[in-house]
Amino acid sequence: MDKRKLVQALFAFATNAHVQGFYHGAIYRGKLKSACVPGLNCYSCPGALGSCPIGAMQAVEGSTEYGFSMYVTGFLVFVGLLVGRFVCGWLCPFGLIQELLHKLPARKIKVPKKADNILKWVKYLILLIFVIFLPILTADKFGISTPWFCKYICPAGTLEGGIPLLLANRPLRQAIGFLFSWKLLILALVILSSILIFRPFCRYLCPLGAFYGIFNPVSIRRYQIERSKCTKCGLCSAHCRMDIDVCKNPNSPECIRCGECVKACPTGALTGMAIRPEPQDSRCNDKIAD
């Protein structure tokens, strides 16, 4: 198991350590849930110890007292500013699930560049429409609204929360209806496409990835290329699972900071997630791109 998989697995377990919840069909009800976890992790997952930031944002927007969540937005800006989409690559349980699915033996599909360039914008639309605008604009006279993204799109909620709870909780099973079938359909599509395409949900649908991605170019920890060392061999881009032209844009909003490009670089020109602005052996600023 490589280092990243280990971190992903440990973090997924650490944030979903309420193991007895899976057996009893109940969720953790402690105070830790007032805090958000950085990744997409449904708070109705029986194991979840913290709150999903996307769910929390909609919960606050859809409550009687607030129209917009300063708390969750501040948290997301803070995390995004520190590490950008590093969260997606290293700390998100649903990202890990997709990666494991992609390991299943099947013919893999590379999404054509043209389609990829269009589809990647869908997640930004989902963030704006389903996570921000609809929960705010559709509030009833009491100020309460539906968590649109969680209710109609999020496959993580179905997989991490819905299925385990329904398996262990008989009364809940009586309430299954059309909505659950719809969400199962979305989940099935995401699972199937994850087998064929590397992280399709993260690439095209995840509003959390969209939010963090905005901060990739300005995040405190980010990739840097020392141009004097770069031979333009293209190995970094060839190893990129998110199909980014790393040499051209090492801090693309699509980058999940998995580090495959850094590992692939034969000359050490690419510095991974360095907090210090310059690589040690370079004093010439104009030779560094980031």
Binding site: K151, G157, L165, I176, F180, K183
Partner: peptide, 8 residues
């Protein structure tokens, strides 16, 4: 349990 989140 957020019934909407889990599809119920």
């Amino acid at each position: 349990i957020c019934l909407e989140c889990i599809g119920i």
